[in-house]
Nucleic acid binder design. Structure first.
Lengths: 203, 203
DNA sequence: TATCACCATTCCACTTGTGGCACGGTTACC
DNA sequence: GGTAACCGTGCCACAAGTGGAATGGTGATA
């Protein structure tokens, strides 16, 4: 995930200072990126301004040091939309934030574009499961020095199960999301319980 | 995640060539790292050899080009164990492979060391949930140009729910793992159904 | 016989990210 | 009065990763 794109997305939501952006990625933007350093945020912002993607206005802080509030320009807006609507290429690890970063920009897309992304992701992951799920994950010919075979093997098996479960749930939730988008159903309402009509209700 | 450490871990399992390692990270090692390039694998391996962490033996391939098979040295083994047993510092994103990379080395640790890692992870994530779960994730003062508010808001909400669910499940599965390790139960056996003893059984 | 996929290694220019520091200010609390 | 946490910007040396090309071979398929 390009920091630039994440920054553009964040700034479209809310023009911010470098400091605020860093804070955002440390707190609510945690899902999107780990360890954003101050230097990185400022340096990238400066580079983006040179390219004309963002501009800043100076915010006077009487007494304290002034802050630069960055806004996305027309050009930056275009760059962001181009990225969003560019064919989606799923990352190797399904846990990587790429998909969620794109879905986070859903408001800038049509339902069809969102569906296209979902289809690519779903197909990719389904293919991966078919390919790798039952391959043996064989280890050492002989265990290395100081290796607790019982613990190691059990943990490997546990890790494999957790991984498989997480992948299955990932796929299932995306399929459900896709269905709801397709059927025009609300995305977040819990599925209504099946209504049982008694004889009395029917009357 | 340092590539070096991952490489050391993989080589402890099975001495390999650079090509094999790259393949491994493209297939079964997918969970640990995305996009390992050839150049990176070879370059890192060379650097590690210079530092004395690995050595290679040349494997003759009559007719074809010879392959270098890398083995972990005593020193490399020590480096790996040092990393494994060093205090665990959870990454920002709980989906990052750090925890699973460590647990993958469980065979080189004692149960107590594994438990220590689990405790740190569980406590960190529980604290994060307490901190961020109910904070508002407010957006634009006014939506940017071409923004579909209905779709955007619904997707944001969906994303938030999915994220919260994934985090909850992550924590729950680690708590269960911890309990089993503590009680000496098998890690992967499904919980036995509660046995209902009837009057007749009792006799 | 051409083409493709695979095996195997290496180099290189380039972009990104890391970790630490320096500067300078405010507000809150003990 | 001290000190800690927060706000704010910026520089720098260095480490790490990217993307592509070059080289040279095998085996299978069309």
């Amino acid at each position: 995930m390009k920091l630039e794109i994440l920054l553009l997305g964040a700034l479209l939501n809310r023009p911010s200072t470098g400091y605020e952006l860093k804070k955002f990625f440390d707190t609510h933007g945690r899902f999107a990126r780990s360890n954003t350093t101050m230097s990185q945020a400022y340096r990238t912002l400066a580079a983006m301004e040179k390219r004309g993607w963002v501009e800043h206005t100076i915010e006077e802080r009487p007494g304290a040091s002034n802050a630069k509030r960055y806004h996305v320009t027309e050009e930056g807006h275009t760059v962001f939309i181009d990225w969003l609507t560019r064919p989606y290429n799923p990352p190797t690890r399904f846990q990587d934030p790429d998909l969620y970063a794109r879905l986070g920009g859903a408001g800038f897309m049509t339902v069809e574009q969102v569906l296209a992304i979902l289809d690519v992701e779903i197909n990719t992951r389904v293919a991966e499961v078919a390919r790798y799920r039952h391959r043996d994950r064989s280890r050492h010919d002989e265990p290395p020095r100081g290796y607790d075979v019982a613990l190691g093997n059990q943990m490997d098996e546990w890790l494999h199960r957790r991984g498989a479960e997480a992948m299955d749930r990932h796929i299932a939730s995306l399929i459900e999301l896709r269905r709801r988008l397709l059927d025009g159903e609300p995305l977040n309402q819990d599925a209504p319980p099946t209504i049982v009509r008694t004889e009395e209700d029917a009357r």
